[in-house]
């Protein structure tokens, strides 16, 4: 439950960029959140309403782009979606809420070598709509 700190982080970045671009009000904030970034969407939206009260971002809508977890094999150089392939092969259900957390393997199923994470750890303000 660190969404309060994350909402404050988003607000700091957003107001800073609004000011630099001589904006007065923020209408939309685009976020890129990796599948493995520990952010719970509902808690974040609630925290966002609280921290933006009385600021230029008070009416700003959060648009969240969830980035899937992917890794590249050091040996065969192939990129894979981590977790998804194993879940499909094992016939495991995708959960009703949120991405599945079981099981993530960071080992290439073909080479047995470690996968380097290439996406899925993002916690980024991507864009702003300002007036």
């Amino acid at each position: 439950m660190h969404e309060g700190a994350i909402a404050e982080g988003i607000l700091t970045v957003a107001l800073d960029h609004m000011n630099r671009n001589k904006g007065k009000v923020i209408g939309e904030v685009g976020l890129k959140l990796g599948e493995l970034s520990g952010v719970e969407e509902y808690a974040l939206r609630t925290a966002w309403q609280v921290v933006t009260r009385g600021t230029a971002a008070e009416k700003a809508v959060l648009v969240i782009d969830r980035v899937p977890l992917a890794g590249r094999c050091r040996s065969c150089d192939r990129e894979r979606l981590i977790g998804k392939e194993i879940r499909e092969a094992a016939g495991l259900m995708e959960p009703v809420y949120g991405p599945s957390l079981v099981p993530y393997s960071f080992i290439c199923p073909v080479c047995g070598e470690p996968l380097e994470v290439v996406s899925g750890r993002e916690m980024q303000v991507d864009y702003l709509d300002i007036d």
Partner: peptide, 9 residues
């Protein structure tokens, strides 16, 4: 106006 930010939260 849309501005690109790409900044770490």
């Amino acid at each position: 106006m849309r501005i690109e930010v790409k900044s770490d939260i």
